[in-house]
Design a protein around this nucleic acid. Structure first.
Length: 172
DNA sequence: GCCACCGGTGGC
DNA sequence: GCCACCGGTGGC
C-alpha cells in the first residue's frame, strides 16, 4: 500500500509538494516536480518506486518527511496516465479541504472537467483530433485524509464515534 | 457575462 | 458509501 502524497495550498494547483513511498523501506521521498511525479505515477503498479531511484539516495538515508499532521495529505490513485503534451492536469482543493476537484488545461487554454468535456472539446477544436487521445485523461481525484478536514471532523465527532481525535490546525 | 467554486446526485 | 460528473450561482 505505498502511496503518494500531496498537500493543500492556495488556489492554482493546490498541490504544494509531491512525495512517493519507497516499496522497500516505506520511507517518504520528495519528488521535485509534477512532471516527475506523474511519470512515476503513470505506471506505478508495474513499476514501484524505490529510494535508489533518487540519485545518491539509499534506503539507509533518513526519510525526507514523515506522515504526520504538519501538512495535509492527499493520496493519489496509481496508474493515472500522464497529462497529454501541452496539457496540464490540475487538482484544486476545496476551501474546507473536504475534497479535491480535477481538471485539465488544454493546449489552447481551455478547461475540461470530464471525459465528456474532452469529447466536446475535440469536436469544437478538431485540429487536436488524433493528437490528443481521450483515453489519456483521468479525472480521478486523490483521497484527502479525513482527519485533515475540519468539516468531516465535526461531522464525525458529533455522533458517538470513538474515533481518535487529531485536530491540528493545518494550513499556513 | 464569465468562471471559480461548491452542492447534489446517479451509478457503481 | 463513494466518487465522477455536472448544474447553479455569486462575485467579479
Amino acid at each position: 500500500m505505498s502511496k503518494f502524497l500531496e498537500r493543500c495550498k492556495g488556489n492554482k494547483d493546490s498541490v504544494g509538494a509531491y512525495a512517493v513511498q519507497c516499496g522497500e523501506c516505506s520511507k517518504w521521498r520528495f519528488i521535485p516536480t509534477k512532471e516527475e511525479f506523474e511519470s512515476i505515477r503513470h505506471n506505478f503498479i508495474e513499476n514501484p518506486w524505490y529510494c535508489n531511484k533518487k540519485p545518491g539516495v539509499t534506503c539507509d538515508d533518513p526519510a525526507d518527511l514523515e506522515y504526520d499532521n504538519t501538512r495535509i495529505w492527499v493520496f493519489d490513485k496509481p496508474n493515472i496516465p500522464k497529462a497529454p503534451p501541452n496539457t496540464e492536469r490540475m487538482l484544486i482543493m476545496r476551501r474546507d479541504c473536504s475534497k479535491m476537484d480535477a481538471h485539465y488545461i488544454m493546449p489552447n487554454g481551455k478547461k475540461v472537467r470530464s471525459g465528456v468535456e474532452v469529447e466536446k472539446f475535440l469536436e469544437a477544436y478538431p485540429e487536436y483530433k488524433g493528437k490528443i487521445s481521450p483515453s489519456s485523461f483521468s479525472f480521478t481525484v486523490p483521497k484527502v485524509m479525513d482527519e485533515r478536514s475540519p468539516r468531516k471532523f465535526e461531522a464525525k465527532a458529533s455522533p458517538s464515534s470513538n474515533k481518535r481525535l487529531k485536530i491540528s490546525t493545518k494550513k499556513e
